[in-house]
Computed example of a mutant assay.
Amino acid sequence: MTDTSLPLRKLGHSNLKISALGLGCWQFSKGKGLVGGFWPEMKQEDIDAIVKLSLEGGINWFDTAEAYGKGESETALAEALNNLEVEEEKALIATKWWPLLRGAGSITITIDKRIKALQGKTIDLYQIHQPFSFSGVKAEMDAMNELLENNKIKNVGVSNFNEAKMREADQVLKSAGYSLASNQVKYSLLDRRIETNGVLDAAKELGITIIAYSPLEQGILSGKFHKNPEMIKNISGPRKYSNLFKKSGLEKTRPLIDLLEKFAEKHGVSQTQIALNWLIHFHGDTVVAIPGASKLHHAQENIGTLQFSLSKEDMDEIDLVSRAVSKF
């Protein structure tokens, strides 16, 4: 089913080979829970269709989390893969443990719930969702080491960790013969803080993959809100209150949007595909991204990103304009 002709990348120092784009599955939360309620409920048949199209287009991994609908996203993903009869090695799964108001002991106590939610499927990458818990990094990585030793998971990642915590996590894992595979952080052409806070440099030094979430800044980089600001009134959820969606935000980012449109016309693709393509190529193989897809055309946009390459000159020009309008 998967287009294996597309080049794959190593996830950190692991044996996993992943596509430069994964599919973010937050939107599969079925509208459940505080976090999952960010998205409207999707029908399982629509989820199946999006997963199928993503696989056919060369995407071979899916990022979900315990917090996404209290396991509903994990279950919906697993159900889609079962319905499509996909072999496990062709659909790698990354999920996350939710740390808030918990200690490291919860990592080992709750792992069987995660496996059950995923209907017994292999957890290829298990991540700490964010750094705030009742335990420190060492205790959490010791718990992850235990899961690795017991073959409950295949690889360990973190999310939203700063440079110091990321280095500590990698060091603890290496003391047990493993290594940190990834750090999932917010990164886009409009939010480039990891380039100046040490996270990206440390990832390159240690061979840790950066997984970029919110790579399109909730759709701002598509340019559709710049062309038709009235669309902002129809946005549901908290994103409509972001400064990016305000008139001043649209004006500030317009030079970048105009440039993305120019390159989209040059390459015969969309602006979102230009933005994603820059993200997954500008730093070599270090950065991969997980755009979501709540509609089939979103999935089509994602897979189209993998089918062309920007020149170094194109990327450098985008880099220059992005620097003038993004967060550092």
Results as ranks from 00 to 15, higher is better:
G71W: 08
S5H: 10
M144G: 07
Q273H: 00
K204V: 05
T305W: 04
V287K: 03
N228Y: 00
S19C: 07
G223K: 04
T75M: 04
S54N: 13
I257L: 08
L310D: 02
E79C: 00
W26V: 13
L34V: 15
M141R: 12
D124C: 00
F161M: 11
R167E: 09
A169N: 03
F38L: 15
L21G: 08
R239I: 12
H226V: 10
L244F: 15
K312Q: 15
T209W: 06
A289E: 04
R114Y: 08
Q307P: 12
V35I: 14
K246L: 12
N243G: 14
W98V: 11
L147K: 01
W278M: 05
T286Y: 10
G69C: 10
I123W: 00
T122V: 15
I109M: 12
E317R: 14
K52L: 01
E140D: 13
A76I: 08
K10T: 14
E66L: 05
G24F: 08
S133E: 04
K204I: 10
L189G: 04
S322W: 07
W26H: 12
T64W: 11
E140I: 03
I194M: 09
L147F: 09
D48V: 06
F245P: 07
N243P: 13
I232T: 04
S133Y: 03
K52F: 01
S309N: 13
G284T: 09
L276C: 06
K52D: 08
T110C: 13
K121N: 00
N150Y: 10
R323P: 01
L101V: 13
V321F: 09
A139C: 04
L216W: 07
E230P: 06
S175Y: 09
G120N: 08
L8M: 14
G268Q: 00
S5L: 08
N151H: 11
E261D: 15
Q271R: 15
S135E: 12
R167S: 07
G219R: 11
K247S: 15
K17M: 12
G33T: 14
R9Q: 13
R192S: 01
L310Q: 05
A299N: 04
L306E: 05
V35G: 02
E41G: 00
L296V: 07
N162S: 02
S222D: 08
P291L: 00
N145Q: 04
A49D: 05
F308G: 03
A212C: 09
Q171E: 14
S106R: 14
T4E: 13
M141E: 05
I235H: 06
K165I: 02
I153H: 09
D3M: 04
K240G: 03
L8H: 10
S182F: 01
